[in-house]
């Protein structure tokens, strides 16, 4: 049953290789001059890619019950809610709301 899936060596070693390669690309990309917001976007996309590999293969989410994947996605969703709404304050502190101005 899903709970007892044995992950094949091919997957585990493949995942580790992919992670190391992605790390090298991440470090390499940081030495190239990428204009401001895009350097962060590149770095974070690579980080998300690596995180997906860890979660999907090392943590076995591909083979596991879907509820576990949902749990992880929920944590992300609520993190995004927290930071998203907080930024609506901190980024717009000195901007008057159009109704008032």
């Amino acid at each position: 049953m899903s709970g007892h899936h044995i992950i094949s060596l091919k997957y585990l070693l493949g995942a580790a290789t992919a992670l190391v390669v992605l790390t090298i690309i991440t470090v390499g990309a940081s030495f190239i001059e990428i204009p401001r917001p895009f350097d962060l976007i590149v770095a974070l996309s690579l980080a998300f890619g690596k995180a997906t590999v860890v979660a999907a293969i090392f943590m076995g989410l591909i083979w596991d019950k879907k509820i576990n994947t949902m749990a992880l996605l929920f944590s992300l969703l609520f993190f995004i809610i927290m930071i998203g709404i907080t930024l609506l304050d901190t980024l717009y502190r000195d901007v008057p709301f159009w109704i008032y101005s």
Binding site: T23, T26, V27, S30, F31, D39, L40, A43, L46, A47
Partner: peptide, 8 residues
Amino acid sequence: FPLLYLIE
């Protein structure tokens, strides 16, 4: 790692 170390 990228957020703390790799901001160039």
